[in-house]
Design a protein around this nucleic acid. Structure first.
Lengths: 317, 317
DNA sequence: CTGAAAGCGCTTACAG
DNA sequence: CTGAAAGCGCTTACAG
């Protein structure tokens, strides 16, 4: 009766509901989960809670998941493949209901790939951020190579060199964006290697340090494309403290279009991608698996360039 | 045997463990929870995931909770009392294991207070951020009134007026900080009401708007104390776009000492409080309840002033 | 439409 | 030290 209230008569139903209220009775979710064979929790594995983009995505995912009557369990992977593998083990989970894996860290290496395969054998799953060859799960990702290419080409209209702030081993996203950057640089006949800047980590401080080091070495490009907004802000700070003007001396563009960009000085341009849309498509694909419906193997979402003060063409033609 | 491996002989133990591995067997957590009477999930209710301070606190809480072998379920309250009340209902929870409530929104009003009381009757609980009179649960909070007072006094050494950016109804934290500000202003004999600025919400945009409005009205103080770092950044942006210099014309200080303050220009001063320490004390008090040990009813943690470019005495004497 | 019974997968107390 | 049994609180199939 509790799960199909319409099968009993209205009178009985009301009597039961009154009694439930009076006795302050509530279903025991562990017992329900045991009997049904699954709980109502979706685990979201996010690359890092310290990065604003994942916070943004996380909130969008919560909206979609809660709209379906499920709750979210959030795991902060901290960019550590070992944390991911642990999180994927069945015993660290609640009953296998579903998982969302959102990370830009490379998943195609053998060990991680096998861990995901094993986890996916037990429960529905969706990956946001990267398509792994031979994946059996649905993937949602952005057109990163393409938009890194476009951002670079556009910056090259106003600058004779563009640095890529964000070469990072083990990062799928950094590698995709680097590929787009290199394609653009190659097309205009510039030296491909010259302005590729590696970073130590993904945070503000790493951006600050990398740019300081290059200025010390006398290498000052006409523009910088950073793989995220934190690096863009850290890099900007380094430029400003060294007396360089943004965008007059060096233009700056990040990735992610996170909240703070409109409030820093100068405001920062960024390559945007809709967290809301990514979340919607991903959760649709997850639910299709619950219902044993077909799902799109790969969904590719477009991006847009958002110009602010840190790039020269903040007034698009 | 699974829960007390030492009671069986080494040979049997190994045989069982080998079989578990071979069959890829894992305990069903719902069944364990049902039998034991409680699960291993701590629910963390945070005021807003959009605010960097709560992200910081959340990460510290996860560390403490996971160190004890429990997992974290995160709920974003979005500053909505209705969401809080829903989250406190027993049926929206897993088995009653424990809850951490971290919010600066006023809890002392009758309805919310009753909801917390009812939830606390079912399970251990700890509140971070505010002491509610007659609370039966442990509370961890910072010395907000005191440090708002000290920050204001210090800014008054270099400015003849300090504005308070953050009057906000329904916020315990805003009210505490306003009280400290007013005490400082009163002590030096200034008009108490004149520089108290209300805000519409807690984000960057609200800070920007509030400050623009005041500049339009010709009200320019010598310094601004904001109740969080987002408002401080939004407010700074407004000052800079109107040609005001920070700190020469207007000094700025926020609350929370979040990540980005060292990378914006000018870097922003802030009143710090240790999220790590708050998390440690809170989870200790939660576990004391599990073990039916006594716990401190109220723990008050100190704060510190962190000076950066946006205040005049960035080199403390 | 209603009520009683079986069983989900564990944990624990108990008998051997 | 080992094995078999009871029971946590639900859901669902079935008998009345």
């Amino acid at each position: 009766m509790l799960n199909q209230p319409q099968v009993v008569s209205a009178k009985t139903r009301e009597r039961v509901q009154a009694a439930m209220k009076e006795l302050n009775f509530h279903l025991n979710p562990a017992a329900s989960a045991l009997r049904r064979g699954h709980g109502n929790v979706i685990t979201v594995l996010a690359a890092s809670l310290a990065q604003p983009w994942y916070t943004k995505l996380m909130r969008a995912l919560k909206v979609e998941i809660e709209a379906r009557g499920f709750t979210v369990m959030l795991v902060d992977l901290q960019h550590d493949p070992e944390v991911l593998r642990q999180a994927l083990l069945p015993n660290s989970q609640h009953l296998p209901t579903g998982m969302v894996l959102a990370t830009g860290d490379l998943l195609a290496d053998t060990e991680t790939f096998e861990a995901i395969r094993a986890a996916h054998a037990t429960r529905p799953m969706v990956v946001i951020g990267q398509h792994v060859p031979d994946a059996e799960w649905p993937t949602v990702q952005f057109t990163d190579e393409e938009w890194a290419y476009r951002a670079t080409r556009e910056m090259l209209q106003h600058a004779d060199s563009v640095a890529f702030l964000g070469q990072l081993e083990g990062s799928y996203l950094a590698t995709e964006r680097l590929a787009g950057y290199l394609r653009a640089v190659r097309e205009v006949g510039l030296d491909e290697e010259r302005w590729v800047w590696p970073i130590a980590t993904r945070g503000y401080e790493a951006g600050l340090e990398a740019v300081h080091r290059r200025i010390d070495a006398g290498e000052i490009p006409g523009a910088i494309l950073a793989i995220n907004d934190e690096l863009a802000l850290g890099g900007s700070r380094a430029l400003l403290t060294r007396g360089l003007r943004i965008p007059e001396d060096v233009a700056v563009m990040g990735f992610g279009n996170t909240d703070f960009l409109d409030y820093v000085t100068p405001t920062l341009s960024s390559v945007d991608g809709s967290a809301t849309e990514a979340a919607r498509v991903a959760i649709d694909a997850l639910w299709a698996q619950f219902e044993e419906q077909p799902f799109p193997e790969l969904t590719v979402l477009e991006r847009t360039l958002v110009h602010r003060e840190s790039t020269r063409n903040s007034e698009p033609a």
